[in-house]
Design a protein around this nucleic acid. Structure first.
Length: 414
RNA sequence: GUGGGUGUAGCUCAGUUGGCAGAGCACCUGGUUGUGGCCCAGGUGGCCGUGGGUUCAAGUCCCAUCACUCACCCCA
């Protein structure tokens, strides 16, 4: 055991795993560009205040999950726990915005939250984020959800559930919260779980999302946010649903879907999978019209989502690595230089493969060639050196091989 | 922050009421002088997570500690 180990909740990804992330990133770029999105790369480190003001001072993320520290000049900095705040900050700071402008931006990269790790949750995790900045129209909400769905389909995922809700706006949500508190006042609070008795006062919306059976039963007849939407929010939500339906995307209405970050309003959504353990949510997002103003910028509406790559990777299964074109099997010490030079020539011509640096027995070197899954075994032994030739062995068909001059290797590969 | 589970070979794991440290896979070398996969034989490889304690004797029992893991909270 090495005496220095990686820190808790951080992981090393070797090729069999990192291949999945590369695939996810490439697919995201391809799909998002079809929707007119371009990549925005923002810093991993931001001033702490940015996250306090955007995510919400009272949220768990800000209260107990941030990697926050003082730099050498005693400024409080934080490793980003999510992407949207940084994107909004960058967008405001750039000064590029003007009324009527629409920006389509996505971001990829690591996020950091100080939580206890478990399946589908690390302290450093990766998200692909998309932000559609500018439009108030509900069609934009639908488009973002459709783009997310297109991405998930492109990586081959089935059996995902789209849950949809509207949280209302600053106008109608307070009315609903009041109705909810009245409801809790009217029921026997003793039947609620310990957490929910606390939450009923502090964050009543959360109680509706509790999985404890007793709480579920007690809140069965609780008022629904969808019955309390105001005259602006109702048609907005109706249009979102209509567009999704006409696009053929099935979704489930979940009036109890609550988001953990304060900046969401109106449309919210979540994509879940039943196959990845307790942390079932692979993506979540919604509309955050108030965020830019809260950060001291202009009043810009926006919709977006965050998608967890580790959770997607859990659903991917092993990816097949491509077969190398060749493996140079060195049988004679005098061929050790030539082997590397032969490989170099082939690589310059676009072929891929490896070399056994040290000479060894035929059996040993061919075993290596076989293990590398190469299509061609290129044998350099005593007789080949003497004649300036290479024996090319077809590793995919038993007993098929030929010996050719150095310069004719490329056209004779199997 | 709270609870459960697990730490033995590179990996996956056995190891009885306390009595010599094991298997499979992987790796290496052979089984025809220069021909892979399948098969066979042999071999390399262990501070039994760490530190205390009990005992003639501890992988095994007790205490502590660390790590990993699953779940809660919460989120992607």
């Amino acid at each position: 055991m090495a005496d220095i180990q990686k820190i808790k909740g951080f992981v090393d990804l070797f090729p069999s795993e990192s291949d999945k992330f590369t695939f996810l990133e490439q697919t995201a770029r391809t799909v998002f560009s079809r929707y007119g999105f371009g990549e925005l790369r923002t810093p991993i480190l931001e001033k702490t205040e940015l996250f306090c003001r955007s995510i919400g001072e009272e949220t768990d993320v800000v209260q107990k999950e941030m990697y926050t520290f003082l730099d050498r000049k005693d400024r409080s900095l934080t490793m980003r726990p999510e992407a949207t705040a940084g994107v909004a900050r960058a967008f405001i700071e750039s000064g590029l915005w003007q009324p009527g402008l629409i920006s389509r931006l996505y971001s990829l990269g690591p996020m950091f939250r100080y939580e206890r790790p478990q399946k589908g949750r690390q302290r450093q995790f990766h998200q692909v984020n998309a932000e559609l900045i500018g439009p108030v129209e509900p069609q934009a909400d639908a488009e973002v959800i459709l783009m997310l769905d297109a991405f998930l389909k492109a990586i081959g995922l089935q059996k995902l559930t789209v849950e949809l809700n509207s949280l209302g706006c600053p106008e109608c949500r307070p009315v609903f919260k009041h109705a909810l508190k009245e409801f809790f006042a009217g029921i026997d609070a003793a039947g609620l779980c310990e957490d929910c008795r606390r939450r009923a006062g502090t964050n009543p919306l959360r109680v509706l999302d509790c999985k404890v059976p007793g709480c579920k039963a007690l809140t069965k007849d609780a008022p629904s946010i969808l019955d309390h939407l105001c005259d602006h929010c109702v048609p907005h939500f109706e249009t979102v649903k209509t567009v999704l339906t006409r696009a053929g995307l099935p979704f489930t209405l979940n009036p109890r879907l609550v988001r953990g970050l304060d900046y969401y309003q109106r449309t919210t959504f979540e994509i879940t999978s039943a196959d990845i353990g307790a942390q079932a949510s692979v993506a979540g997002g919604g509309r955050y019209d108030g965020l830019f103003k809260a950060l001291g910028g202009p009043d810009i509406p926006a919709v977006g989502f965050a998608c967890g790559m580790e959770r997607l990777a859990l659903l991917l299964g092993q990816m097949e690595r491509p077969r190398p074109d060749f493996f140079v099997a060195v049988l004679d010490e005098r061929a050790e230089d030539a082997a590397v030079l032969l490989a170099q020539t082939l690589r310059e011509a676009g072929f891929s493969g490896e070399v056994s640096y040290k000479a060894g027995s035929m059996k040993s070197r061919l075993r290596q060639a076989d293990k590398s899954r190469a299509r061609n075994g290129l044998i350099l032994g005593e007789s080949e050196i003497a004649a300036s030739q290479v024996t090319i062995k077809n590793m995919t068909v038993a007993g098929e091989q030929k010996t050719v001059p150095w310069a004719q290797v490329i056209e004779n590969l199997y």
